[in-house]
């Protein structure tokens, strides 16, 4: 798969409204490559409207949940082994992010952690995830250490998953917020929800048919997937479904958590 994106001016990236860019030809003296940004012919693309959101404090997993941890969970609870027989040894290494699970399987893991620690744990809401990826809502498009991407230095070289924590964390200390597996969110997906949500601690629409998924290279990009769509193998295409969707958990408590 080739790179997808567009050339924008670095001035519009650095000084313009968040997510609103001036598109230019690649030979423009101020051109910079912006992956995963799309532009229809003649369109000046914008991410408006900007919507103010206020979040309560919470804690978030530093890493995406690994196969190693998820396998302990399935064994302890008698659930089926995740993606058994669907991945080669290189893809299913213990320290790689667990993926190929449904939304419910991901959420059940977080609830299991919560039951066994006495903490109010769950999947992150989309707002919580974005706020954390942008290091408490800073004006950055990438959840990397610098706010910009550099392949092989602070993001992976391409498709596929790598061991969690292979690259430096974002300034908040969270790893893989702009790379590695994508992540299931708690929220139902609605394309315009972010613009109309409640201002305080939004948790997504009441209902829907798809769940939100985040963690593309560009942290502002939103994805969505049917929650029950189990990945499958087809003869024609190999793996189908949502092969690279994993997750991490949050604790909805307004104080830091420590071990006794």
């Amino acid at each position: 798969m080739g790179d997808v994106g567009a050339y924008i001016t670095s001035k519009s990236f650095n000084e313009g409204p968040l997510g609103s860019y001036e598109f230019v030809d690649k030979n423009h003296p101020d051109a910079m490559w912006m992956p995963w940004v799309f532009q229809a012919a003649g369109e000046k693309r914008t991410a408006e409207p900007v919507h103010k959101v206020t979040l309560s404090s919470y804690s978030m997993g530093k890493y995406e949940v690994t196969f190693e941890a998820f396998d302990v969970y399935t064994q302890a609870t008698g659930n089926p082994v995740l993606a058994e027989g669907m991945l080669g040894k290189r893809s299913r290494k213990p320290r790689k992010p667990a993926h190929l699970m449904t939304w419910q399987q991901a959420r059940d893991y977080c609830l299991w952690l919560g039951e066994n620690t006495g903490l109010n744990m769950d999947l992150p809401t989309e707002a919580q995830w974005e706020y954390a990826a942008r290091s408490r809502g800073k004006k950055v498009a990438y959840g990397t250490d610098t706010g910009m991407p550099k392949k092989g230095t602070n993001i992976g070289p391409g498709l596929g998953v790598e061991k969690v924590g292979s690259y430096p964390p974002n300034p908040l200390g969270l790893y893989d917020m702009s790379a590695n597996a994508k992540e299931w969110m708690l929220d139902w997906f609605a394309p315009d929800y972010y613009a109309n949500s409640p201002e305080v601690d939004p948790r997504g629409p009441e209902s829907g048919t798809e769940k939100s998924v985040r963690s593309g290279k560009v942290v502002l990009q939103r994805y969505h997937e049917p929650p029950k769509a189990a990945p499958r193998i087809t003869k024609e295409f190999g793996y189908e479904g949502h092969p690279y969707v994993g997750f991490r958990c949050v604790v909805n408590e307004d104080k830091p958590i420590i071990l006794k």
Binding site: L18, G19, W36, V37, A47, E48, V50, H51, K52, V53, T54, L55, S56, S57, Y58, S59, M60, A127, Q128, E130, Y131, A132, R134, R136, G137, K139, L172, Y194, S197, V218, L220, Q221, R222, D254
Partner: peptide
């Protein structure tokens, strides 16, 4: 993650 206000946008 200490809570606070931010501008929520999307691409």
């Amino acid at each position: 993650v200490e809570g606070g206000a931010f501008r929520w946008v999307m691409l």
